[in-house]
Design a protein around this nucleic acid. Structure first.
Lengths: 360, 360
DNA sequence: CTGAAAGCGCTTACAG
DNA sequence: CTGAAAGCGCTTACAG
């Protein structure tokens, strides 16, 4: 790091190149390049000398040039859309951190709904990203996804495409939704409701189908199956008002935590019901808000760290091999039982007997 | 978009280059390049012909090569750190959208606290980003920021460095904190508390100083000045318990909404106080949660759209001129009075008389 | 281990 | 308006 007196913003000073550094040192430009590339044939001594000089002259290899030579950009494109759900920012942050660790910088591609989506995806190809991670339940068709990711490592996170021609990693939604249904049954509830989020997304469909199926298997009654239309507090609130108005439902599963929290407020504050005595409420994801004492929401925790780790591992694998077979990777989560489905006393009993998931 | 039968993931097929397309068409490679560069001298007819052929052969200019030639990456690095605060994901999303609109793709750099920060910043230089936007209250020193942004357009969002040698755009924290103090005074409160977040950050310091100063000017008593240590629900909750225990305070200003919501829950649920009758609560930012009926939190709205627009405008300006003078750009926000400081009746009265900010 | 040279795929003066 | 050619700053066979 060198100071640069007189630089008032934009650089008047061009960074030094490998060739210039080489000339300065009386070595070849190839040597400079090799000094910065691990595993190349260069004596430890020369490398040392070059790295020291580089430090002194503030030289750094130009990544753009090296991308052009190697046809490797070391960039991962992360395709995201709606970030309303607090689950995603934290997932993205962890993912980008892990990618950075294996040498991939994250280029974010924000897909705006509505506008021409394919046009937005061309950037992925233009920038020659080595890998793409699609974290987005949005309206991208399987065809455009295949086109955009063609020739590069690609993983879909928390979404799948029907023909499964692309690798995906996700929370096991079926396991989760069944666990919630089982839990409702175990605490004696028999009239249950389901509230969905963004229709036509795989997360939503899987949670809905698995829940409804399990409810039937257990002989419980499905009082409502409402589509919120989106994963939002407002949609959850509205659905909560609808469910509470009918007075029969004693447990409600919302397809994600934000919906559930909206529903919670509607049922408790909006309608004056007691949670969980009158109605038990469960969500999905385990976002930070669920742990607020006010909510203490029972939810199914998505295994975020495992999702991130698996995603990165699959990317590296694909990057290393020329041909691979797409795989689907549902990862196990964990049911977290909290106050919104169990009163404090019941929770304590269960915890004391050590037979249930922690409530943290 | 062409199908590519037999591609099972990684491409066996190299994308076509400008030279190949040129040969195919019997034109020069320069012509192909010009066809894709607006404002270059090429006949409309030739351009048309080339663009059609490009479509047919699925040709797209290689952005990496063009970066090397033009020494323009068309990439903006966005330096972010903690995304706990829901204010930031939405800011980042909008920013990246707007940057995309002016032709800059966003490369996200996640700075992890603790680990070597300068090392993390070298990527900004290696990737030759044209612009950098630092959205982060984190521990980056002015010196490392100057080094990392040297020679490129740079804007700090919601943070400043002491010597003001870098351009910054932020919400006018002083205006906001004063407005809150004035509002507390106007509704008859006289014993007020302040709760801060991340110490040593400019947002926190400005809000704190302006609030405390204004409180003194108005002759109110400052009962507490607590540092939460971080911008989190938990810190707010803890501070709320502390403030409520003393029984004197009738209004509390939390340096951001997340803190305020934690404080709200502590004061209302934890201690059984009435909000706003016993204690009025105000936050800062206007995140979505503040509009939840449960909270209806009075807050100072950051002008997010204006912040994004100004940031992008400044970036473009810097990109266009060789030398520029760093400027500080505090942008006006808006006080949103909601139920956490005014009872429903008072709110209605005020709204009817049309003399106050909307509560939306 | 080291260097000279070709090449990655564009852009852009320079001629015509 | 169009083309031939140099050059952006690296990497990497190829010789030695």
């Amino acid at each position: 790091m060198s100071t640069n007196a007189g630089n008032d913003g934009k650089s008047p000073r061009k960074p030094i190149t490998a060739r210039e550094l080489a000339r300065l040192m009386g070595v070849s430009q190839s040597a400079v390049s090799r000094a910065f590339t691990p595993g190349t044939s260069i004596s430890a001594e020369l490398r040392e000398r070059i790295l020291r000089a580089a430090e002194e002259f503030d030289y750094q290899p130009n990544a753009i040039a090296s991308m052009l030579s190697t046809r490797r950009s070391n960039i991962a494109g992360i395709v995201v859309s709606e970030m309303q759900n607090p689950f995603y920012p934290s997932l993205i942050e962890k993912l980008s951190r892990e990618l950075q660790r294996v040498g991939l910088q994250s280029l974010m591609f924000n897909i705006t709904r509505g506008s021409n989506i394919e046009e937005q995806l061309v950037a992925l190809r233009k920038y020659n990203v080595d890998a793409v991670v699609v974290i987005s339940a949005t309206v991208l068709s399987g065809a455009s996804l295949r086109w955009a990711t063609e020739g590069r490592a690609a993983v879909l996170v928390n979404r799948t495409i029907p023909d499964q021609t692309l690798t995906s990693v996700s929370c096991d939604n079926i396991e989760g939704a069944r666990a919630i249904a089982d839990h409702f049954h175990a605490i004696g509830r028999r009239n249950v409701a389901f509230v969905g989020g963004l229709p036509h997304t795989s997360t939503n469909l899987e949670r809905q189908n698995a829940f409804i199926t399990r409810v039937a298997e257990l002989g419980m009654t499905l009082t409502h199956a409402i589509s919120g239309g989106e994963y939002s507090y407002e949609a959850g609130y509205k659905a909560g008002m609808e469910i509470g108005a009918a007075e029969r439902t004693d447990a409600a599963f919302f397809a994600n935590d934000i919906l559930a929290i909206g529903g919670f407020d509607a049922l408790k504050d909006g309608l004056g019901l007691r949670v969980p005595e009158d109605i038990a409420i469960a969500g999905f994801d385990d976002v930070a808000m669920t742990r607020w004492p006010r909510y203490s929401l029972t939810t199914f925790r998505q295994p975020v760290d495992a999702i991130v780790a698996k995603t990165v591992a699959l990317i590296m694998e694909q990057l290393a091999s020329k041909a691979y077979t797409p795989t689907q990777n549902p990862l196990s989560g964990e049911l977290l039982v909290r106050h919104s489905t169990l009163g404090a006393q019941a929770l304590e009993q269960i915890e004391a007997s050590g037979q249930t998931p922690a409530s943290r």
